[in-house]
Design a protein around this nucleic acid. Structure first.
Lengths: 159, 159
DNA sequence: GGCACATTGTTCCAAATGGAACAAGAATCT
DNA sequence: AGATTCTTGTTCCATTTGGAACAATGTGCC
């Protein structure tokens, strides 16, 4: 009868009253988009988060080290390290020791990896579009500008 | 020398070129704010995510069931179930069987729990303010409006 | 050069996480 | 009323996760 199928709670109303500026809403939305997409990717491709993040990074950044990926994704290095091994085994990426720095290796995505990454972005995009459907073109532009500003700043913070 | 302390990657530039509308930026920011705050909370209070989310929900919603909390936080029921037990043990919440529905129990936050929740919101707020510092008042208003719109819509999607 | 310190990638391990199955109660249908 | 289906909260278990310690290499400083 009510417009809301769910039982008792009005999620939106709760979220409007939380004593934090944007954190809770951001977190909720990220769950709604990313976590849901993440589950879909795992179901359809078997890849888990660290793995497709790795592919995503390598597809847009021609060459990176594992550490770079860790920074770009804000995930701990050991997570990325594991992902690198699995993606090497699957033939999605290549690795070559860096001659100028013996500690690190340069990672590149293979053609097979790029195909997989395209498929993954497709899956994530579908879910995202579903969630952001109610935004106007102006909204999209504003959101984009604000998020870019925030990301730029957040990336400069230590930790 | 460069304005960026880090080694090679320009995170912001990468994030600007990802082939997804907002998903990656949202995810990155949520990490920067929430995950960092989450670590701080764990360090300072010993509470983990499911647990402080539970307190957060109960502090703003006078009475809820575990299922309500699961929906408000987009976390699986078993996570919340565990959190309920631990918070009961700590005396942060109370639980009373619902006479009108034998399956569920009504949860309420105690005074002790409310004190803890205040402290947690403080910690999370600090980190959030640090990240959103570069936003103007207009930005805040826009972001707020957009996020509310999105949350409302996301909450209505199944899954 | 040598010595302290930082960085990269890795392994280990304890903890958190979430899917699946379950029991008990409620709702629906005939 | 009984049968079927749904919902709530829980336990079980396998997987994911990330902190800490580590070896190997690089950097800065005297």
């Amino acid at each position: 009868m009510a417009k809301d199928d769910h039982a008792g709670v009005d999620v939106a109303e709760f979220i409007a009253t939380v004593g934090l500026r944007h954190a809770y809403r951001l977190s909720y939305l990220t769950s709604a988009i990313v976590t849901a997409g993440y589950d879909a990717v795992k179901r359809e491709t078997g890849l888990i988060r660290g793995e497709y993040l790795l592919l995503l990074c390598l597809s847009h950044q021609k060459i990176s080290t594992a550490q770079d990926v860790a920074r770009m994704t804000r995930r701990p290095r050991n997570t990325i390290s594991r992902a690198v091994h699995r993606m090497l085994d699957e033939g999605y990426i290549d690795r070559a020791p860096d001659p100028s720095d013996g500690r690190q290796s340069k990672l590149t995505i293979t053609a097979k990896g790029r195909a997989m990454q395209t498929r993954i972005e497709q899956i994530l995009s579908e879910r995202e579009e579903e969630v952001v459907a109610p935004l106007s073109a102006d909204d999209h532009a504003s959101l984009d500008a604000i998020l870019q500003k925030l990301v730029r700043h957040a990336a400069s913070l230590k930790d």
